[in-house]
Amino acid sequence: MALLEIKDLHVRVEDNEILHGLSLTVNEGEVHAIMGPNGSGKSTLSHVIAGKPDYEVTGGQILFNGEDLLAMQPDERAAKGVFLAFQYPVEIPGVATMTFLRTALNAQRKARGESELLTPAFLKKAYEVAARLNVPRDMLKRGVNVGFSGGEKKRNEILQMALFEPSLCILDEMDSGLDIDALRVAADGVNALRSPDRAMVVITHYQRLLNYVVPDFVHVMSKGRVVKSGGKELALELEASGYTQFEDAA
């Protein structure tokens, strides 16, 4: 059984249909890249998988481990192992990063019927993960993403990914706003989390990121559906020829 199975998905926002029959299958351990021009529906796809309100699914389905993902609340999806690394992680003034991480981790554990981690056990785990990702402790004491640089925000997303140990990671435009050094750090963090029982969907506009996070499969999206799929070499092809051919094809 596939980890994630999207079948003929139609999604609209207000009066605009953004996804017109998108299908995608992702198995455990695989890394898929989704590429496409602006406005092709890449971010919409990531938001619909995570359960963001304001999107109306008018057709098709999303199965996660065979379960109907669209019937679940966003927090249920997180507890089941779906993680969206946001393109623009929000700032939450007044909520200390540590408090946020502990509350979130324990909410997920509780939903899965696991015992909540007590503070000492949580701190140990959080500091361990932070050290592994070179996240300074000072960052954990500040308000969630408040005053963080673009790179720090992305690192905070990866830290959460490492801490929550999801089975499906959706990385939405992870490279946006990052310089080459910050990108490398973030990519190293992601690569360290690749594992046979975890799948990743890497959404990006540029091929650059895929030099660092090398995908098993590449899909090209245009006008709300996947128009071409292939191996990692497809990304290089795109880099050379651009998206225009697919816009015409779609």
């Binding site: 609340q73 997180a78 969206l84 939450i92 003034p93 979130a104 997920q108």
Partner: peptide, 19 residues
């Protein structure tokens, strides 16, 4: 953002109200 990290609606609201 908070719900996507596993907090229920009430938990997410409570955290933001506390802040």
């Amino acid at each position: 953002y908070l719900r996507a990290r596993g907090l229920s609606e009430k938990e997410a609201q409570a955290l933001l109200i506390q802040a």
